[in-house]
Design a protein around this nucleic acid. Structure first.
Lengths: 140, 140
DNA sequence: ATAGTACTCATACGAAAGTACCAATTCGCT
DNA sequence: AGCGAATTGGTACTTTCGTATGAGTACTAT
């Protein structure tokens, strides 16, 4: 947000500077007006390109980085429950997750059940679905 | 491709027209030069926006449509098996899929087992994983 | 006509997954 | 010190999933 405001500020200043420049040039030498117009056209063309690229890139990159933490807290998922959810989404069985996290299968079952309750789902396949919808998962 | 060439042609013509317009205006009345520059700036700003939007939209939409059919055939998945796989990926249980496709749960189990064999996986969670990696699934 | 493929269904068994309790330990916070 | 949340683990039971095997039907291609 702050970045956007800063960029727009810079843009506005650049815009004003360009207008001033065009006026001065107009007074001094009348023949080069086409170049100035061309320059302005090119500058704004690239401004348009740049702004759109910024927008599209923030729309595509941010969901995998930013959205994570907030929603996890909102759902009340604890650290461990989230870890289990991640392994679960990778297609591992309870037993495999237990080995990976160095705990018993019972523990994983407990965590998994809690995850289901907090995500409001009944099966692990649905949990994966929901987690992907919420952009909670690291990969992708 | 043809569309792109057409659009660029139109743009170049519009550009030339704008330059001509600016020259005429320059000769007739010298005071309105700022408006012309402003107009050109705005036009090219939107041109930049438009071109980038075209590019980004074609880049993001195409991958979800094209990749499907080929890989499904390569894997040897039949129509029915693919349908089952899709419902499976939506988080449905075998019983639910059976209801949705108006067949018995036994049939679904058979299909599901065949899908596992063809995708070379052991569990339904892994099947979902693999299907997403292969861009076989409709949504997303 | 026959072989092959896809689709259907059943039975039976074993392996995961899921639910419902309960309980001990650890850790941060007041 | 004590409270609450998180983590861990267990038992017992039900449900779902997955595999194996066999078998009938229908459609296609040779």
């Amino acid at each position: 947000m702050k970045k956007t405001i800063f960029i727009f500020g810079v843009l506005i200043i650049a815009l004003l500077a360009l207008f001033q420049l065009s006026q001065y040039s107009l007074i001094s030498k009348n023949t080069s007006i086409e170049y100035i117009i061309g320059g302005i056209a090119i500058v704004f063309f690239f401004v348009g390109l740049y702004i759109n690229k910024r927008k599209s890139s923030t729309n595509t990159i941010t969901p995998s980085i930013e959205i994570d933490t907030k929603k996890i807290e909102n759902l009340g998922l604890s650290k461990r429950e989230y870890e289990v959810l991640c392994e679960l989404a990778k297609g591992h069985s309870n037993k495999e997750i237990a080995s990976l996290l160095f705990v018993s299968e019972s523990t994983i079952k407990t965590h998994v059940s809690n995850v289901y309750t907090k995500l409001d789902v009944k099966r692990r396949t649905q949990a994966i679905q929901k987690a992907k919808e919420l952009n909670i998962l690291p990969n992708l």
